[in-house]
Design a protein around this nucleic acid. Sequence first.
RNA 1: GCCCCUGUAGCUCAGUGGACAGAGCAGGAGCCUUCUAAGCUCUUGGUCGGGGGUUCGAAUCCCUCCGGGGGCGCCA
Length: 554
Amino acid sequence: MFPSAIHEAVAAALRSAAAAGDLPDPGEVAFVVERPRDRSHGDWAANAALVAARAARRSPREVAEAVVRHLPPIAHLERVEVAGPGFINFTLAPSWYAVVLARAARGGADHARAPAGSRERVQVEFVSSNPNGPLHIGHGRGGVVGDVLSRLLDYAGHRVEREYYYNDAGAQMGRFAASLEARCRRALGEEAAVPEDGYHGAYLEAWGRELAEEMGGTLRSLPAAEWEPVVLRWGLARAMQDIEETLALARIPFDAWFSEADLHRRGEVEEAIGLLEANGHVYRAEGALWFRSTDFGDEKDRVLVTGDGRYTYLAPDVAYHLDKFRRGFDRLINIWGADHHGYVPRLKAAVAALGFDPDRLELIITQMVNLFRSGEPVRMSTRAGEFVTFRRVIEEVGADAARYYLVAVSPDTTLNFDLEEAKRRSMENPVYYLQYAYARVRSLQGFAAAQGVERGPLEEADLSLLRDPAEVEVLKQADRLGEEVAEAAARRAPHRIAAYGQDFAAAFHKFYTDCRVVTEDPALSRARLWLVAAAESVLLAVLGLLGISAPEHM
RNA sequence: GCCCCUGUAGCUCAGUGGACAGAGCAGGAGCCUUCUAAGCUCUUGGUCGGGGGUUCGAAUCCCUCCGGGGGCGCCA
């Protein structure tokens, strides 16, 4: 509400200053109203005068002063001043913070939520690991980023659907089955070598033993050639079970699970290629069928169907994205690991070739995760299949800390994740700092109740007693929640909400230290309990958006 | 060689066009007979990788060079 009210008033002031001849008409001025970095510059600042100065042929400060002279009244505004090179700074009155408190305290965790479905219909596709092994920490990062982003988009008023796409068809699955079969045969006492191009992870040995135990009898009665479908089906189910359990442990839910094999069964891959062909974007060369992706900015054309008649991975992906667009989403967001970034131009090209606006497909690339233990790198080799699984990380450090560390930094930044640091129950751990703020809220409320102190109806509370700087700061920070969510969602930057959580928690801890809530003064105690209720709402909202638990006690 | 990410305080990272560049940790000095000290206060510390440019204004945009990571298959 506030920045837009100020923006409107400043724009009006520019017009009336021009109309009154107080200032040459600068025409339309594209200026912004934002929170100044420096607190002493007030709560909001408009750069209108700096932007308009050239067109108005006056110095920025002269323009700013003219604007202030013609500024219409704005509710809850205490002070307006011209400062620095020509900023117009606005300071809010305490009455505004009473509004903020009431809204937060009454509205609970959803008090800053945008109206449901007021924005776009968005699909977020993430994790989408192939069902041939456990999730690793990189998948975990994509999972948490996708999950928190989904929660943010939802809170910001979008209709969000979360989808997991799994490649349960194709050559990779064949290699997986062959590797698993070899492990199983060995477990059954046979001689069998894991294929050179197969999977060599330690987990496969365990799965091979499991398979031998569960299905050994059945398998032994089958001719060697008939093992594969049985092994494949079992392996797929085993992998998916592991993936689903891990995601559940990490509190990452999905609305839809989409199978590549289903695409093939429904003939959608053929259909998609037919559509590209009909649009004239396909040609045959060197025995293969090519997509002329260079027409859409890709650096080289890409094969859709190989010389021996098999689909490349691109073909089903084209079909999959056609399917997505046909489901009517306004926007598709895919979250991929850094190792897939080179694939972006060809998929965008395919979307364009199918006749859709490629800007409706957004790719978020999460950079790598490096694992450390007390500063020492944890050696991992994906090739040898020796990696710390996401599940083990969650089991070791807990879902709360794992989630926080994985989402707290920008997706663009390589993430250094230290297991020992994440586990530490100390000041080095921002997870506990945030959760501790909530535990203090609950503790305060419990103590007040035990003392027989009640906050009473909000209408009867004297909020003007909340004059301590620490009290005002809590409400100022509370006021930011809606903006921060909107910004984090719009910029696809989930780490911002973690940073906001730290800011809010800091304001609350300071309040806790400076202001005693349960006091000899009943009116002051009631007002402060209402402030605590507002803080409770904000903390529940932030913890909920991060998918981190809200502990009653620490 | 080409493409993507990145280079900000000793460390881990925010900040991507605004006013003297921020936080946490680490280092130094304080605050618990009082609602949880997993907290609070003060303090030390930075040529925002280097150099050009655009702009009233650049950590932020453009060019270039240097360092780190990742990707460049008819593999996914």
